[in-house]
Amino acid sequence: MSLKTINTDILIIGGGPAGLSAAVSAYEAGARDMLIVEREETLGGILKQCIHSGFGLHRFGEELTGPEYAHIYISKIEEYGIPFMLDTMITELKPDKTATAVNSADGIFEIKAGAVILAMGCRERSRGALSIAGSRPSGIYTAGTAQKYVNLLGYMPGKEIVILGSGDIGLIMARRMTLEGANVKLCCDILPVPSGLPRNVEQCLNDFDIPLRLSCTVSKIHGKDRLAGVTLVDVDESLSPVPGSEEYVSCDTLLLSCGLIPENELSRGAGVIIDSKTGGPVTDENLQTVVEGIFACGNVHHVHGLVDDVSIQADIAGRAAALYVGA
């Protein structure tokens, strides 16, 4: 069977912050033959929709927005002439570092790589995975998907908002939705302490007098076609609902910021062993997985709090991959 094949020394799966940083550092370590494969229409990954500032202080000494941080790396990619493919999905990765890819222009083809850097990022925990009881109306989004509607597409998911989960994405969206004119009624979290950074609790909730209710979660969703409200319930130390503490809050939008899950389906297919604690590949100090020549970095490895840390980690993977292919 003759399938179009592309050969490359280093295949980087994902053109978000991890993939971009890894590519740049591999180049700076001497590698030249590489290919970044990105499923979206442009490079930048999740940074494209993170229009808020707070990135880059550690890495570049200045506070940048997500797109500005991406811009620095994309400029380097262009300056170095590092090859990349857009609108291309990797559907399979084998232990021998052969990947199957598909896009509109080339159809289904193969990429044979000397080394692979896994940089696919993560997905959000959905309502279904949280098993929140009640009806299934529209109006329920993970915070990141809502962020995409607002920041990339220009649509408002809703007007009267409740946020479940005080992770940074939820806090950031509390501020964003408020600035765009929505009424964020409250943010609640099942844990007794906020999951996001204190600075985000301050500038996203306190700045706008949005209440933060800890040890509190959503126990039921109400609404026929569109969300009409949620039942909040307090929880005890064992995170069990406290009977009698139920409170109905009317709203038309529920944003979920309840955890990120590294996206390792491709990794598993390649024989990479996943650490059940992090959800990402088991790696050595060079970020090499148990499969020789396959490296991992960024949120696919474990969920990072700051993109600066992603870049630091991706640098290691990029250099290690360059060394591995003999650059």
Binding site: P137, S138, Y149, V150, G154, Y155, M156, P157, G158, K159, E180, G181, A182, K224, D225, R226, D252
Partner: peptide, 19 residues
Amino acid sequence: ISKFGGESLINIGRTKSDL
């Protein structure tokens, strides 16, 4: 565009408009 018809709209208006 809705989730399943009726009142189940996914988005309620655009940004940059008076809510």
